[in-house]
Design a protein around this nucleic acid. Structure first.
Lengths: 249, 249
DNA sequence: TTTAGCTTACTTGGTCATCCAGTTATACTT
DNA sequence: AAGTATAACTGGATGACCAAGTAAGCTAAA
């Protein structure tokens, strides 16, 4: 006799779902302006607080931008605007912002690490890297245990700058949140993990240019895989159903 | 002459940072129960709506579980976001870490801004800069209203990367916290503000190399002044209880 | 002793009215 | 026709309010 806990649905969650659904149906296009709060609470039949809770979440995911006094806007998708986009594409696009930030910061972090890493730092990096190559650890396990995150965090630690460490930690949590929705291919993931060794080696050799270069290709690959997922998604989706009528809510 | 406040940073974000910081510091362990809303709004000094917005985001990220009538609980140790240093007594050396991070990040932010800034972005930057040169605005006023912070935040905004914007906001709040411990000379500070114009000009001319260079010297100067102030401060200490109101980065 | 039912205090969920500050568009002045 | 007040927006934030769920403690009946 296995009873399940009754799911308690919050109003703000249903609003998020509704917005996402509208994006998928093409009723909302990138760059579009949302109706004002006062209009929306009327159309959705919720209070202003609840509406704002929903938009806070959307905002923290980079899907919506709030301009005080100026309204709320759906994320403008970068590059060529696709006729065909889903809420997933939007999240992926937001993920590219994170990758861009990581390219900027982590390439420099790794330079600092090459200069400042202590023997213990390097030892830890080697250990973390070995955990991947090691016999006992399955990829599944590696992935579940956030080994990738631990590795990049250890790099940041080796930079011996507490601010950078905090920033990297933030970027990692964000990219983890978003990455869970963008499933990477098995082989891609394998390749990415392999590149960690190059970075560790460059750092232990104190070659900062090389370390920066390796980190750069590492993150460029990550970006490439993410974009590939986007393309796959487009191909999979048969005929386009994009007759985006502008019926906002 | 209408003044604009620096309010670009949202209250709910700072709460998230603070909670994440507590997780990092081990003050909150998985399974722990949070204080009730009414207690927290008192401790944090915010309204209930803001608190709930923060927890909604935490909830949507799977970090916190809200049980109606039963309280809020920490779910997993995903942790590692920005720490909150407001009440922390940081060594002055920590300030150099902040500057180092800003050099790394803001020089690149400014490059992106030079590439991506819209006409409105540039207009806003020009306005913010003009407020310093303008006749009507006294230096005192400029200081009190955190114009410097607003300027750097506007730069981050012009990079059109929402992650970088948040990172810069974080760096600026740390700088703000720390600046109370550092006395900047009047002329030094004047010079720093003047350099803002160079940055704006480079961006509006779309010369990203120049923009990066100007930002670099800007932050190098800041570091130099801080080190000087450190020496001054060390000499002065003992009688003076730091009338450090007149400091601004 | 056990157990069902009730009370009570405390929790989160949700609404509302109100104010603030910044944006935008209108209309009036020069 | 350009410039400038002004009025009507926008989101940001607050505090009071009610509803509903939870949990603990008490009581009374089995």
């Amino acid at each position: 006799m296995n009873f399940q806990r009754v799911k308690n649905v919050r109003l703000y969650e249903t609003i998020i779902q509704q917005v996402m659904g509208m994006i998928d149906k093409g009723e909302l296009k990138p760059g579009d302006k949302f109706p004002s709060e006062r209009q929306l609470i009327e159309q959705l039949g919720v209070s202003r607080s609840i509406l704002r809770e929903a938009f806070r979440v959307l905002e923290s995911r980079g899907i919506v931008e709030s301009r005080p006094g100026g309204g709320r806007y759906l994320r403008k998708i970068s590059g060529s605007s696709f006729m065909n986009f889903t809420s997933m594409d939007l999240e992926r696009d937001a993920l590219l912002d994170v990758i861009e930030a990581r390219e900027i910061i982590e390439t420099r972090v790794v330079r600092l690490a090459a200069r400042r890493a202590t023997e213990e730092d390097i030892e830890k990096l080697v250990d973390l890297d070995r955990e991947f190559h090691g016999t006992g650890t399955s990829l599944q396990e590696y992935r579940e245990k956030d080994r990738d995150m631990a590795f990049h965090l250890a790099l940041a630690e080796a930079s011996h700058n507490f601010v950078l460490k905090e920033v990297v930690a933030y970027l990692l949590t964000i990219s983890k949140d978003l990455r869970e929705k963008t499933i990477l291919d098995f082989d891609d993931w394998l390749e990415l993990c392999r590149q960690h060794s190059d970075i560790v080696k460059a750092i232990s050799d104190r070659k900062e240019d090389e370390a920066a270069e390796k980190m750069k290709v590492h993150l460029m690959e990550l970006r490439r895989y993410i974009l590939k997922g986007k393309k796959d998604n487009l191909e999979k989706r048969g005929e386009n159903v994009c007759e985006s009528k502008n019926t906002l809510f």
